[in-house]
Design a protein around this nucleic acid. Structure first.
Lengths: 216, 216
DNA sequence: TGTACATCAGTGAACGCGCGTTCACTGATGTAC
DNA sequence: TGTACATCAGTGAACGCGCGTTCACTGATGTAC
């Protein structure tokens, strides 16, 4: 059954798309080649007509998932009024829907730790997508794309991704909701707060009674 | 070779301790029973005299690692002057040393996403340890252990854990250092800032246009 | 005290199983004439 | 236009391998007498 060029590209894309879902659901090592191909409506033998190795698919699927996330964020921001852009992303990200649907959610909380153990080459590909995400997030902060804003965007992403992992571990009860809420509020309150001065540390300023009890 | 009771307990503890290191390094599915036993100076056949299954060891090792982390945080806080307790923990956590040494570091960035996919029973055990961590962190914040402080502690942990995962993905270059720094500053600046408590107190004072519009 | 027996942590071979990968083959469709 | 051949995405059996787990066995030491 010889197919047209487009046909192969379509099949390839279908495998990647389905794998991106299943890998986020089951982990980078949680599902086999045969099952991934079955998901795409194929048998496992054809796999190597499309990919050099299982790892190559993981990288492609991961990149695909990351791109979809940034697309989604841009879309959410584009639909919101300017002052609600950040919150529209944060609230969607730290929602029970996202927590309970890792297969269609952000790849970092689902696969980040596993990717961190992969080869430098794989991590590089991942890091490039992470830069994209930081860029999109930085655009949602008021006040230009200077270094301080980039830093804010990094911290916001770290908080969002960390909170989502914790919320998933906690399951779906009150504790989990608490973790989601704590992440949401931290990111949004921090974005709303006046910007700290770039170089000088502000760490000392608010501690009152505890500071008074300090011993040298 | 019949051994005394203590001997078996010691051996058991040694297996758990070594496994806790290797599992954080390699992931919850990244190393086999035979290698884990070898690390403890034993052969794989004896494994089931100590554990019902591989999963049982993973849970024990994970709990062990979490306890060691909270111990370590208490120790760091105890050695620091009161106003530096939080920063001593945060700076140790978001350091290149911690980033580059997952085997002896916090288990959440190393294994959290994988644990999130395990059985409810496993996640429960994990969540209990997470509660411990939140408690220890909350103690380091100025101003009692009320609900707002607990929330701050949750957000701080989310930021720390998220930033560490991202820094590990980024490897060890400038990008990675940037991520660590962004996480450190976000946690410490937020702890130093006036509390934006939702229920009662001085929450809104510092906010500007974005905060006013942030609520849905 | 000395001796015979029981115990059981640890050994190492073996098990079944699922995995990633390979390979000979198929057959619908593109291409050459 | 019709016909013969070439292509190659996809099939399904088979491969070697490593895994978690089982099991008969070992032998140093605790215990009973």
């Amino acid at each position: 059954m010889r197919y047209s060029k487009e046909h192969k590209l379509e099949t390839h894309a279908r495998i990647v798309k389905k794998a991106a879902v299943r890998l986020r659901e089951k982990g980078a090592h949680g599902i086999g080649v045969a099952d991934l191909m079955k998901d795409a409506g194929l048998t496992h033998g054809g796999f190597y007509a499309h990919f050099d190795s299982r790892e190559a698919l993981v990288i492609e699927a991961f990149s695909h998932a990351m791109d979809r996330s940034t697309d989604r964020w841009r879309q959410l921001a584009g639909q919101a009024a300017p002052e609600q852009r950040l919150s529209s992303i944060v609230e969607a990200y730290l929602s029970p829907q996202h927590r309970d649907n890792p297969g269609h959610g952000c790849a970092v909380p689902a696969l980040g730790a596993e990717i961190a153990r992969e080869s430098a080459k794989t991590r590089k590909a991942f890091a490039a997508k992470l830069e994209q995400m930081i860029g999109v997030m930085a655009e949602q902060f008021p006040g230009g794309s200077d270094k301080a804003t980039r830093k804010q965007a990094m911290a916001a992403l770290a908080t969002m991704m960390g909170a989502l992992v914790l919320a998933r571990v906690a399951g779906s009860g009150e504790f989990s909701e608490e973790l989601l809420g704590a992440g949401r509020d931290a990111v949004l309150e921090r974005a709303a707060a006046p910007k700290p001065v770039a170089k000088k540390s502000t760490a000392k300023r608010a501690t009152t009674k505890t500071a008074a009890a300090a011993k040298p």
